[in-house]
Design a protein around this nucleic acid. Structure first.
Length: 561
RNA sequence: CGGGGUAUAGCGCAGUCCGGCUAGCGCACCUGGUUUGGGACCAGGGGGUCGGGGGUUCGAAUCCCUCUACCCCGACCA
């Protein structure tokens, strides 16, 4: 491709709205342009990269027996109503205004289940892996970070149909392996975490993550262990017992509203402080008791309570249910008989200090085994913190931000049951099809690659995602016809040899070409200038290492091999 | 949805507080000339509903009301 003909608008300055490197560089290097919040156009150079990513995805899906579909983005809302997801997705689902009964598909579990119901009738019809690589629409409340969170984006999603749970396990494992291969081929460093399956329903779920300060997820990782913070656990020791048998004692704490106040004003050891949090779950109050400075993990709480409908109680509710305002609440002498659950670390502990359920007072010497027989439920409720020992080998956990690149779910029968997609087994008995769901964000691969492969000059492309293999730079071809002539020859030879060549034949100064070349970031720059050419030489520069070599014109093909 | 910010030429910005000549600067773009290995120089030139609507005023980019878009933090995130 001759650059003088190629639509490749590079920018010298960063766009004001771009905050993260991948977003800035996608705009500056002419890969993409924003059309509206969370909506992007890909320009020819960017689309070349998208197509290369898609081809890798397609190859890896085909390799595990996947069959590619082209599914509609316009969906009848009835299907979504049958699975309850119109309500579950709420504003995230785009509704068509001037045609009743249509929505824009944010994903395709329902449509897959619909077609499975039509035609998958027998255990002989399975297993199946169906996939698509298409545009999805989600009315995100807050699009951000360039293409990382958009309202319209490309997704590879696959669905497995199986007759048995063992079959689902096998399909899941196939996708796990295919995803690892895909990201490795793309040259992306990633890790896999156990994840919460959220409102999707289902049994097992893992996310493929890229560590990045631009990420929206938080993960805990150490060697041999990695988990989304929503489900991460650590080997922090329980509070345990101290050698004391003192009775419970009430004491005045008029100016202590927080755990830190208690520690400072009364010299109570931090680990002996316990705190109480009141939540309202499905309109019922619940008191959560945990170590003083631990943070409640709402995802874990949702999992334990089996509902996502929960919120912290407000002041009036605190007083109504406990008798005290926040800061003075505890598990003993509660005003009303509400459910209490406690963090595992407090099980069997004694010598604890907690609120007295009376404003301005706390209790000390609380012994869980002696004083709190009414607390029978103990769960892991806390959010792990940086540096806590891993449950695998005690290595300190690192808490990092991460971008979710892919997600694999063992869905189970939620959608097949809701949409009545059933099959007959070999004994003629009817069962719902067992499904899995596996997604990868295409634009996110591109953005993550750039996040991991750039420097202060621009992007650093490598095979196989690079939009071109070679950037051929003609230095002052207008003044030196021999340069233009040599470039024309090289351009033809390299193209004939199978290289994708971007040929900078523009009438620009050397500096502009060099800076554009570094910004665009093709892996190899072949620089043809009059000085070197006079001796029959050209220069080769490798973008990643910055290494430059002056070599004879005739040995270029050997150099590139 | 809550909080904060921004909107002036294709891009980046100044001018707005304190209303007043023809709305400016850098980059980009066009013409001519000179340059030519790390974002050249000289000269000339084109390009603006100052986000939209309404109001105050002799006069509004500037003050008031209102709407919209975009960005950031939070909430949410199948």
């Amino acid at each position: 491709m001759r650059q003088s003909d190629f639509f490749l608008p590079t920018l010298k300055e960063n766009a004001a709205e771009a905050q993260i490197p991948s977003h800035q560089l996608m705009l500056r290097s002419g890969l993409a342009r924003q059309l509206a919040a969370g909506v992007f156009s890909f320009l020819p150079m960017g689309y070349k990269v998208i197509k290369k990513i898609i081809e890798i995805l397609r190859e890896e899906m085909d390799a595990i027996g996947g069959q590619e579909f082209l599914l509609p983005a316009l969906n009848p809302i009835e299907i979504w109503e049958q699975t309850g997801r119109v309500e579950a997705m709420g504003d995230v689902l785009f509704h068509i205004k001037n045609r009743e009964g249509l929505v824009l598909a944010p994903t395709h579990e329902e449509i897959i289940a619909f077609h499975a119901k039509q035609h998958i009738k027998s255990y002989r019809d399975m297993p199946q892996i169906w996939y698509q690589i298409q545009t999805k629409f989600r009315n995100e409340a807050r699009p951000k970070s360039g293409v990382l969170r958009g309202r319209q984006f490309t997704m590879k999603d696959a669905y497995s149909l199986d007759t048995t749970w063992e079959g689902l396990d096998a399909a899941y494992e196939k996708h796990y392996q295919a995803y690892c291969k895909t990201f490795e081929r793309c040259g992306i460093s990633f890790f896999v975490v156990g994840a919460s399956s959220g409102a999707m329903g289902g049994r097992q779920s893992q996310e493929f993550m890229v560590e990045s300060d631009s990420g929206e997820d938080t993960c805990a990782i150490a060697s041999g262990y990695s988990a989304n913070i929503e489900v991460a656990t650590s080997a922090v020791l329980p509070v345990g017992r101290i050698d004391s048998n003192d009775p419970i004692e009430k004491f005045a704490t008029p100016n202590a509203k927080t755990i830190d106040d208690l520690i400072e004003q009364f010299g109570i050891p931090e680990e002996r402080c316990a705190k109480s949090v009141v939540y309202i779950a499905d309109d019922k109050p619940i008191l959560i008791f945990m170590r003083g400075n631990d943070e409640l993990n709402e995802s874990k709480l949702q999992g334990i309570l089996g509902t996502g409908n929960l919120r912290p109680a407000v002041a009036e509710e605190l007083i109504e249910f406990t008798g005290a305002d926040h800061g003075s609440i505890g598990p003993i002498n509660l005003k009303s008989d509400i459910r209490i659950i406690s963090d595992l670390l407090l099980k069997d502990a004694n010598g604890l200090v907690s609120g007295a359920n009376e404003d301005g007072f706390h209790l000390k010497n609380i012994d869980f085994t002696r004083d709190c027989p009414h607390i029978k439920e103990f769960y892991d409720l806390r959010t792990v913190r940086n540096g806590e020992p891993s449950i695998v080998n005690g290595e300190p956990l690192r808490i990092v931000k991460a971008i979710e690149l892919g997600h694999i779910f063992k869905l189970g029968t939620k959608y097949s049951e809701a949409l009545d997609a059933k099959f007959l087994d070999s004994e003629g008995k009817e069962h719902p099809i067992i499904m899995g769901s596996y997604g990868i964000g295409v634009e996110r691969i591109m953005a993550c690659y750039i996040e991991q492969n750039h420097d202060d000059k621009g992007i650093i492309w490598k095979k196989p995602l690079t939009p071109f293999d070679v950037h051929l730079l003609a230095i002052n071809p207008a003044k030196f016809p021999e340069v233009a002539q040599a470039c024309e020859t090289l351009y033809n030879e390299l193209s004939d040899a199978g290289y994708e060549v971007l040929y900078d034949d523009r009438d620009e100064t050397a500096g502009v070409k060099f800076n554009d070349a570094d910004l665009i970031g093709l892996p190899t720059q072949v620089i043809v200038g009059a000085k070197n050419l006079k001796d029959g030489n050209i220069e080769v520069k490798y973008r990643e290492s910055g290494e430059r070599k002056v070599i004879p014109l005739s040995s270029l093909k050997d150099e590139l091999n």
